[in-house]
Design a protein around this nucleic acid. Structure first.
Lengths: 245, 245
DNA sequence: ATAGTATTCCAGAGATCACTGGAATACAGG
DNA sequence: CCTGTATTCCAGTGATCTCTGGAATACTAT
């Protein structure tokens, strides 16, 4: 094989990898999978696609080796193949944000524009977590928390925020996080908590970024801090895969 | 605009960015542009595409804001819009390499497989450059050297390697570099120099990666070290744009 | 002005892709 | 075994993309 042929194969392989990201729906699927594995039906429901269409998009992502599957009973669970896929997604977002004015406008208007305070970044939160002077809440749906969350964070899904308010000490500052830099859950939570007098900011990144930075991630149901709790369960470090409940 | 609409716009914008990379020819064009700006005709010649086709691929890349143009006389010079585009390219390559067996096979067989010694990485070369104990040679075509090279490197285009041999001291170790991790020029140079008794290794990365690491880059023609040289010319730091000669 | 060169614009042929609906497969539970 | 559910497979349609060749535009040099 001569150099031209090798080049064509390499450039072709890279283009195929990029092609897998060249559809809005597939980007959305990957974005969801970055939060933890999901069944085909769950992905179809969350994206609004038909089951058939979801299945074929997923097949394409699998052919490009961006996702892998696990079969359990009649369900097929998809997950990201590798953390480098998260890097790739973030790379695309960074370029789009820097180069496409609309993306930056949307991001500022709908995300950060609503948040009067600067978000906390991962390194800062890590420092503050080590000294224990902050309460971290994960406002994503409970299943995503179980699939992997910042070690030490409490699970406070947005729809149950009001019920969990008594558990949150008003004396300590709170940091809320959700799926990632383009997710609105944490902003919503910050707004609502601030109205109730909490000292609260949001984390700019999500769990995938936190894990990529090498910071500790835990999986499994919530480990409550009150004594004698029956909620104590599986608890692993630096693994995002969800154990079957 | 509701959340669904914002999401669709964001995912759409990201997909459009990825779509620009979803063609082998466009990846090749970007790969070349990472070495410095080029005219349409030069790109067409180096990739083997027709002028028409090259022009339309470039127009698409420009619409996606991955490249920018500069007009000089009747020539249009294209260049990467941003260093984040280099990151994106490298991200795609990293995923493809880790996930697609063929890419890894090709890379090992045609690139590293031919190089018996471990390549030097950028951080190590930077350290050795500071202590001055190494001769660094840039084996790319002279125009690419002029567009931007590792500060302190000599320009020794592969096709003139033999003529420049007397300039290279055999007493000091040599490090050769070319376009990037998938380029064969440096490997070729290493093989030939080693046959002649030089102590030589190659740099694993290229100038785009070196610049992304924040290490010093110089532009312009070669600054010879011998006294009284007339070759001393423009010399700028950390700018890859080529001055018109 | 005229000729020549570099680039872009445009229209058309062939290939590929996204989505749909129907059918097939795989599995769990009765 | 039979039913219901989850998923995949397959064929078809409309849209999109790549490449080609011809024409138009922009600029230089004579």
């Amino acid at each position: 094989m001569d150099h031209r042929a090798v080049k064509d194969r390499l450039y072709g392989a890279w283009a195929d990898t990029a092609k897998a990201l060249a559809s809005p729906k597939r980007v959305e699927l990957l974005d969801l999978l970055a939060q933890g594995e999901r069944s085909v039906e769950a992905l179809a429901r969350e994206t609004g696609l038909t089951i058939n269409n979801t299945s074929s998009h997923l097949a394409l992502l699998k052919a490009a080796r961006l996702v892998e599957t696990r079969k359990e009973a009649q369900f097929v669970f998809y997950r990201l193949a590798d953390d480098s896929v998260v890097d790739l997604l973030r790379g695309v977002q960074a370029v789009a944000r820097r180069r496409l004015h609309e993306v930056d406008y949307l991001a500022r208007t709908y995300l950060e524009g609503r948040d009067p305070l600067e978000p906390v970044d991962a390194a800062e939160l890590r420092r503050r977590l080590k000294t224990g002077e902050v309460t971290v809440i994960d406002v994503r749906p409970a299943l995503e928390y179980e699939a992997g969350h910042i070690a030490g964070a409490l699970s406070v899904p947005l729809e149950h925020l009001d019920e969990r308010l008594p558990d949150l000490p008003k004396s300590r500052p709170v940091v809320a996080y959700c799926r990632g830099p383009y997710c609105v859950y944490a902003i919503e939570a910050v707004e609502r908590l601030r109205e109730r007098g909490f000292k609260v900011r949001r984390l700019a990144e999500g769990v995938p970024d936190w894990r990529r930075a090498g910071y500790p991630v835990a999986a499994g149901a919530e480990l409550t801090l009150r004594a004698g709790s029956a909620a104590r369960r599986r608890h692993s470090s630096n693994s995002q895969r969800r154990r079957t409940p």
